[in-house]
Design a protein around this nucleic acid. Structure first.
Lengths: 173, 173
DNA sequence: GTCTATAGGATGATAGAC
DNA sequence: GTCTATCATCCTATAGAC
């Protein structure tokens, strides 16, 4: 599962074969079906499993009780996250692939998303007062990372990330 | 090319075969290579070609000179765009696939993105004064649509789109 | 330029031994 | 549960007739 999360996030559903996953897990592809029903099932479970080490989960683990929105924003909208130098947010990495998947995968994605929104509303240090702020902030963060990953020009990526960080506070005022 | 844009936007790069494209164009798959070098080349050109009928292009065509930001925001963050009832914005539809493509495709995507930012800065009715506003608004719009497409629950999609519309004005104040 | 036909390779999934 | 081996299918790309 660890291999699946990493590879799916990096290369997408279709560009990762079961052979790739099993190879990364130091097994042969024949052993796959002793663990999962199908590739789709694996992907669906990967969406949920990836939340374990997401940027938000990491911050939650480090903080006791409330955490700072600014900290989440700057940790989320950074080059290391765009380049997947650490375990990425599944909402950004799996969004488009999930659009093309079945209802069960979308359901898993929806649960992760509403989970994020609930945490933003309840666990932040008082800056996020309403659900509208939480929802729009999530869209800005995910959009910023998803677009950055598709861009070629480092300068434009710098500008985009900086602009999103700068303007994020306007959404939660 | 029209078939390619439609299918790639709906199902993604890997889930569309050249046979699918040619079938939609009422041709057989053997004729493909008389028009394009490879599937990757087709995709790269589709990213650029899709801008022709994007929501922004439609608004630009209808308006003379400056256009309203509010109009773009409400036309972009709507169910018909999420469901691709009309020709979608390539920046939202092709973002994640482009991340997994070669440099030429990313270059095409980057050109479309910077083109959008330039238009937001220059052609809007005075609400967008700086590049930071344009960049963050783009991320919010694209993020809102990309996430909505991955969600299963209509109520959550409604909430998300409404929240992004409501908060978009905060980014361009 | 379009067609049929096919090469050549990768992939999801299965079978059966250990 | 893991392995090797294989099936069946799909896909990109090419060849050659018209």
């Amino acid at each position: 599962m660890k291999s699946a999360v990493k590879l799916f996030a990096q290369k997408g559903f279709s560009c990762v074969s079961l052979g790739d996953v099993m190879k990364d897990a130091k097994l042969t592809h024949g052993a796959f079906y002793a663990h999962f029903d199908s590739k789709q099932t694996l992907y669906k479970e990967a969406v949920s499993a990836a939340t374990e080490h997401s940027p938000l989960a990491t911050i939650l683990r480090k903080s006791e009780g409330a955490f700072s929105v600014d900290k989440l924003v700057s940790n989320y909208l950074c080059h290391d996250h765009v380049d997947q130098k650490f375990s990425p947010c599944p909402l950004a990495a799996f969004a488009t692939d999930t659009s093309n998947q079945n209802g069960e995968t979308k359901e898993a994605y929806t649960k992760v998303f509403t989970g994020l929104i609930d945490i933003l509303e309840s666990k932040t240090d008082g800056h996020i007062n309403d659900r509208e702020s939480a929802l729009s902030l999530a869209a800005l963060l995910i959009g910023g990372v998803v677009v950055s990953r598709a861009l070629n020009d480092k300068e434009t990526i710098d500008e985009l990330l900086a602009a999103c960080i700068s303007k994020a506070s306007k959404l939660v005022e």
